[in-house]
């Protein structure tokens, strides 16, 4: 349902992405793996219309979204949870959720703050707390919840486990499995291979802006050469 075909991206003169293609199906979790600066975040930003690509195409539910501005892409049901959470620190939890609120969509689960508080019980206890006074793990939860308020049918998660305690990362894995159950397509960028293995169906490895490997997580585990070359854990 979400397809990237041969996109590229530049920063100044430097090529950051070169001919990147992959797809994510409904109810599928795909992990975008690779080191820092490999092009994972840029891929997601290009999909969200934050970085422009001169070549290729991005389609969502069969419709091209490449030249659209971010807010239109979001309104079509593609949710984005950025790197480093980017919570509105001056706004309370409820206000953060309000910013993310969009209309109900027929093809996607409908979220309300109450329903989200069941998924993230911690947040329920701090409805009126400013985002800036929350811990990193809580902010990450809020960032995901905020994006879900837009009722997306597919969601991009950029490094959700970065800088977060292992015990919270486990909760995050649980949340992602829940979203998968709801039928969402999930694209996850990760450096933590343990975490990626836990939740994802397929893996796409990016290195220096190009895709070096695509396959199921199981195949990746059985292929130590690839693993060691690009991930090397």
């Amino acid at each position: 349902m979400l397809e990237v075909q041969g996109i590229n991206a530049f920063y100044g003169q430097a090529k950051i992405l070169d001919d990147v293609s992959f797809s994510v199906g409904a109810g599928e979790v795909v992990a975008l793996l690779g080191r820092n600066g490999a092009g994972k975040s840029t891929t997601m930003k290009t999909m969200m219309g934050m970085v422009s690509s001169t070549k290729g195409d991005v389609t969502f539910n069969g419709e091209t979204i490449k030249k659209l501005p971010s807010h239109v892409i979001c309104q079509k049901g593609l949710g984005y949870v950025p790197e480093e959470r980017r919570i509105f620190t001056e706004l309370t939890v409820m206000e953060n959720l309000e910013v993310g609120k969009q209309d109900k969509r027929p093809d996607a689960p409908f979220w309300t703050p109450d329903k989200l508080f069941k998924l993230f019980p911690n947040l329920a206890e701090m409805r009126n707390r400013p985002g800036g006074q929350m811990s990193g793990g809580e902010q990450q939860m809020l960032s995901i919840a905020r994006t879900l308020m837009g009722n997306p049918s597919a969601i991009l998660l950029d490094e959700p486990s970065e800088g977060i305690a292992p015990v919270i990362v486990e909760q995050m894995a649980f949340t992602i499995m829940e979203l998968k159950k709801e039928g969402l397509a999930v694209l996850l960028s990760e450096q933590n291979l343990h975490f990626a293995k836990l939740v994802s169906d397929r893996a796409v490895i990016v290195e220096k802006g190009s895709i070096r490997y695509q396959g199921t997580v199981k195949e990746l585990e059985e292929n130590p050469e690839i693993r060691d070359a690009y991930l090397a854990v």
Binding site: P69, C74, E90
Partner: peptide
């Protein structure tokens, strides 16, 4: 107002507000 909430959010991070579906 919702407008006010959106404006305060945009004050901090306009790109993020846009990615959340608001025509900033």
């Amino acid at each position: 107002t919702r407008w006010g909430t959106l404006v305060r959010a945009a004050t901090q991070d306009r790109e993020m507000v846009s990615a959340l579906g608001v025509n900033q």
